[in-house]
Lab assay of single mutants.
Amino acid sequence: KPRTPFTTAQLLALERKFRQKQYLSIAERAEFSSSLSLTETQVKIWFQNRRAKAKR
């Protein structure tokens, strides 16, 4: 499955949200993903990867 190329605007929004909160609830994820027109899975995986990156 090819990787999702996120737009610059989407990445900025994701990073901004991540700075506020490293873990999203299911409801927050649903709302946030639709506002960015991404799937919930894409947002979930992005947050997982971003948390892993923050640990390094």
Results as ranks from 00 to 15, higher is better:
residue 34 S to W: 06
residue 30 A to Y: 08
residue 21 K to S: 13
residue 2 P to T: 11
residue 5 P to D: 13
residue 31 E to H: 00
residue 44 K to G: 10
residue 46 W to N: 01
residue 54 A to S: 09
residue 16 R to I: 07
residue 6 F to I: 04
residue 55 K to Q: 13
residue 17 K to T: 06
residue 53 K to G: 03
residue 49 N to D: 08
residue 37 S to Y: 00
residue 2 P to E: 15
residue 36 L to S: 04
residue 30 A to L: 09
residue 47 F to K: 00
residue 20 Q to R: 04
residue 27 A to T: 11
residue 32 F to M: 08
residue 48 Q to S: 10
residue 16 R to D: 12
residue 37 S to W: 04
residue 26 I to P: 11
residue 44 K to S: 14
residue 4 T to I: 11
residue 39 T to H: 10
residue 45 I to Y: 13
residue 14 L to I: 04
residue 56 R to W: 11
residue 52 A to Q: 10
residue 37 S to T: 08
residue 30 A to P: 06
residue 13 A to F: 13
residue 40 E to Y: 02
residue 25 S to R: 01
residue 56 R to T: 13
residue 38 L to A: 01
residue 34 S to Q: 14
residue 22 Q to N: 11
residue 56 R to S: 08
residue 37 S to L: 12
residue 16 R to L: 14
residue 7 T to K: 00
residue 4 T to D: 12
residue 23 Y to M: 10
residue 48 Q to L: 07
residue 43 V to G: 00
residue 48 Q to K: 02
residue 52 A to L: 07
residue 4 T to R: 10
residue 38 L to S: 05
residue 23 Y to E: 14
residue 9 A to M: 13
residue 26 I to V: 12
residue 24 L to R: 01
residue 17 K to W: 01
residue 1 K to I: 09
residue 35 S to I: 08
residue 24 L to T: 01
residue 32 F to V: 13
residue 10 Q to V: 09
residue 44 K to L: 11
residue 52 A to I: 02
residue 55 K to E: 15
residue 23 Y to T: 14
residue 25 S to G: 05
residue 46 W to A: 01
residue 24 L to M: 08
residue 6 F to W: 04
residue 49 N to H: 07
residue 18 F to Q: 03
residue 50 R to S: 08
residue 50 R to Q: 14
residue 19 R to A: 15
residue 11 L to R: 04
residue 21 K to H: 11
residue 56 R to I: 15
residue 32 F to Y: 04
residue 48 Q to C: 06
residue 29 R to H: 12
residue 55 K to H: 06
residue 10 Q to R: 03
residue 55 K to V: 09
residue 23 Y to R: 09
residue 37 S to K: 12
residue 38 L to W: 01
residue 8 T to K: 09
residue 9 A to T: 12
residue 24 L to C: 01
residue 54 A to Q: 13
residue 37 S to R: 08
residue 51 R to N: 06
residue 29 R to E: 14
residue 4 T to F: 12
residue 41 T to D: 15
residue 31 E to W: 07
residue 2 P to L: 11
residue 14 L to D: 13
residue 42 Q to L: 04
residue 28 E to C: 03
residue 49 N to Q: 08
residue 15 E to M: 04
residue 31 E to P: 04
residue 8 T to C: 10
residue 4 T to A: 05
residue 1 K to T: 04
residue 26 I to M: 12
residue 20 Q to K: 01
residue 18 F to L: 06
residue 41 T to S: 14
residue 6 F to E: 05
residue 51 R to A: 06
residue 36 L to M: 07
residue 33 S to C: 10
residue 42 Q to H: 00
residue 26 I to Y: 06
residue 44 K to P: 04
residue 39 T to K: 02
residue 15 E to D: 05
residue 23 Y to Q: 12
residue 42 Q to G: 02
residue 34 S to H: 08
residue 48 Q to Y: 04
